[in-house]
Amino acid sequence: MKKRIIIITLVLILTGTAVLGFDIIKLTPDEAYEAASQVDIQHEIDELNIVLKEAGLTSSQKNASYTAVNSYQGNITKYVSPFDAETNLMVSEMNLAKSEKQLMVTIFSSMLSLYDSRISYDDSIESYEAAKVAYNEGISNSSLSATELLSLEYTAENNRIKMLQAENTLTKRQKELDRLLGVENAAVELPVEYTSPYSLNKEEVYNSMIETDIALFQSKRSFESAKLRHEIAAKFYDEDEEMFISTLSSLMSSELNYNKKLQSIEDTVIDRIDQLKTMYDSIELEKLNVEIKESLYNASMKQYAAGIISVNSLESAKKAYDLALMQLDSKIYDYIISCMQFTIDTGYTF
C-alpha cells in the first residue's frame, strides 16, 4: 500500500512538472531514500535471503532437538550447526541493516557525481563556444594560412568532442541517479552541515567499531564455533587422532584471524580519521580560493566601471568566481558523504 502511495505521488509529481514544464524533479534526502528503497531490487533479494536463512536456522534447530548426543557428529548437529546457522542469519541481518544505511550514501554519491559532471559539461560548452568563435573568425581572416585555419578547426572539433564526452557522462550520471531512485530527471538536495574531524576521539571510535564491525563479529563467531567443535572433538577423540588435531588447528587459525582483525581495526580508525582530516583541510583551502576569486571579481567590477577592462574580462572573472564556489561545494559534499560512510563503517556518530 505504502509502495503504491509513493508511486502515485511520484507519478503526480512527474505529471505536474511535465505540465508546468520543469525538467528536474527535486527530492529531499528523505523522499529520495524512500523512493530508492522502493526500487532497490538487491534489497528485496537480501530480505528474501534472510527468510531462507531463518528457515535454515529453524530447520537446524529442529534437527538438533531430534538428535542424540552419543557421537561426535550428533553433538555437532545438536550444538554447532544451530550456532553456525544463527551466525549466518545474524550476519545477513547486519549486512542488510548496513546496506540500508549505505543507500543514503549511494544516493548522495550519485547526486554528487551528477553535480560534478554538470560542472564539467558547462565548462566544456564554454570551451567549445570559444573555440568555435575563434574558428569562425579565422575563416573570415584571409591572412591565415591553410594549416593555421585547419588547426583552429581542429581545436574547435576537439572541444566539440570533449563537450560530447562531458554530455555523455552527464547523461550517464543522470540515468544512474534516475535508476537508483526510480524517478526520471531526478535531483536530490545535498546536505550542507558538517563538523570538524579534529574533535574526534580515537578511542571512542575504536570502541564503537569493535562493537559494530561485521567482519570482526563474523570472525569472533567463527572462533567461538571452532572452540565448540574442538571441545566436542576432545570428548570423543584422543590427542593424536586426526579429528582432534584438525579441530585444534581450525581453532588456532580462527583465533589468529580474530586477533588480526582486532588489530587491524586500530589502524583502520587512525587511517579513516586522517582521511577525513585531509578532506576537511582541503575545504579550507578551497575557501581561500573562493576568497581570492571573489576579490578578483570585485576588483574587476570596479575596473570595468572605470572602463579599464572589457566586458569579456569581467565575465571571465565572474566565471572563475562561480567555478571556485562550485568546487568548494563539491569538496564540502564529498567530505559530508565521507563522514556518512565513516559513520556506517565505524558505527560512530559525529
Partner: peptide, 10 residues
C-alpha cells in the same frame, strides 16, 4: 516460493 521470488528479482 522464496527461491522463485529471489530468482525473478535477480
Amino acid at each position: 516460493e522464496t527461491n522463485l521470488a529471489i530468482l525473478k528479482l535477480t
